[in-house]
């Protein structure tokens, strides 16, 4: 038997207004130029996920299904919060689609910023209806009492989280470190219009996804022309590109050699 504390009560005004205010602040924050990386990127994720996927749905669910306990259970609240949120996004997408700007980040944020206060007002009004519970969210209707779990329960809960975390971590680590044979790409892509007209130049490129830094040599052999050669090393994930002249009336062959191996590692060619 754990320790028992006094139940926490929040007024219905708080439990409707708080998500609206938090959502509005989150929306305004998302309108700022936070940038895609660094702290700004993290803020966008931490703030953006509840702003898009939870808060509008929660306020909508409070507007549609006011009250708690006998009016709407926790499971129903969770279910309808997420469902109404997704429904809002699906239907709103059709609306945003007809606007010139379409479904951009700004248009989504502005739309949700409009929905939140409107739904909040409706929820507030409906919560005042007859027979509604005076307190919600953390009232007795939701939690009999907020109890400190017994140590054994805490241990079990901790074990559950730890084991689930281990499963997730194992999946991530094993997939990230999964060995796969290294490879390199060689291409010779004619430039210009995509017709069958003979090209004058072509883009020659090498991309390495080998297991380590490798030394490469590329030879280009246009028919009847002197051979051009380039040597370079590439780290895994790096690429090398070169524009080369290719005669339109003859085949040009490009060969890729890896290390000191005299056998061509890759080969490509144009057609005359």
């Amino acid at each position: 038997m754990g320790l028992r504390s006094r139940p926490t009560r929040l007024s219905r005004r708080t439990t409707v207004a708080a998500p609206v205010v938090v959502g509005m602040l989150a929306g305004v924050l998302l309108l700022l130029p936070l940038g895609p990386d660094g702290v700004g990127g993290v803020v966008r994720i931490v703030v953006g996920l509840p702003f898009v996927l939870v808060l509008p749905g929660y306020v909508l669910s409070r507007a549609v299904l006011p009250g708690t306990g006998a009016s709407c259970s926790v499971l129903q609240r969770v279910c309808w919060t997420l469902a109404l949120d997704m429904a809002l996004l699906v239907v709103s997408a059709l609306l945003l689609n007809v606007l010139p700007n379409g479904l951009t980040g700004t248009s989504w944020v502005v739309l949700l910023l409009l929905v939140l206060p409107v739904a909040g007002v409706v929820a507030h009004v409906r919560e005042r209806g007859p027979g509604r519970a005076r307190t919600v969210l953390l009232s007795r209707a939701w939690w009999p009492t907020i109890q400190w779990p017994a140590p054994r329960r805490l241990l079990i809960a901790g074990a559950t989280v730890a084991i689930a975390g281990a499963a997730i971590g194992l999946a991530l680590v094993s997939a990230t470190t999964q060995p796969s044979p290294g490879f390199s790409q060689l291409w010779l892509q004619p430039q210009g219009p995509t017709t069958t007209a003979a090209p004058e130049t072509a883009q020659l490129g090498v991309y390495s996804d080998e297991d380590a830094t490798r030394q490469f040599r590329v030879e280009v052999r246009p028919d009847g022309e002197p051979t051009q050669t380039w040597s370079f090393s590439l780290d895994p994930g790096d690429s090398w590109q070169q524009s080369v002249d290719v005669p339109g009336d003859a085949r040009t062959v490009a060969l890729l050699f890896r290390g000191s191996d005299p056998t061509p590692y890759r080969q490509v060619w144009t057609s005359p």
Partner: peptide, 9 residues
């Protein structure tokens, strides 16, 4: 008449 554009092994 057939060009070999790309080769990754």
């Amino acid at each position: 008449g057939v060009a070999r554009l790309f080769d990754s092994g």
